[in-house]
């Protein structure tokens, strides 16, 4: 039963990490705009290399 000594704290610890992760994500406003987040992922503005980045409105890609 000594296995419990580390298994139980490990289980609890993992759960707590999840809980704090959720709390943090909520506090930092990540749930404020669910629709926007779903749409923003489609933006390519973060691609710095002009070779990689398709021209604006160019839906066919490079």
């Amino acid at each position: 039963m000594s296995v419990l000594l580390y298994l139980v704290p490990t289980a609890l610890g993992l759960g707590l990490i999840g809980l704090f992760g959720f709390m943090w994500s909520m506090r930092s406003g990540q749930y404020d705009d669910m629709e926007g987040a779903a749409n923003r992922i489609l933006n390519d503005d973060d691609l710095q290399d002009p070779q990689v980045r398709p021209a604006a409105n160019d839906l066919t890609g490079p």
Binding site: V8, A11, L12, G15, L16, G18, L19, F22, M23, M26
Partner: peptide
């Protein structure tokens, strides 16, 4: 937001207590 926090805590606790 407060209710959501309460829900998160309740959810976390339920899962772990259920495990036990």
């Amino acid at each position: 937001k407060w209710l959501l926090r309460c829900l998160a805590v309740a959810g976390f606790a339920t899962m772990n207590v259920m495990l036990l």
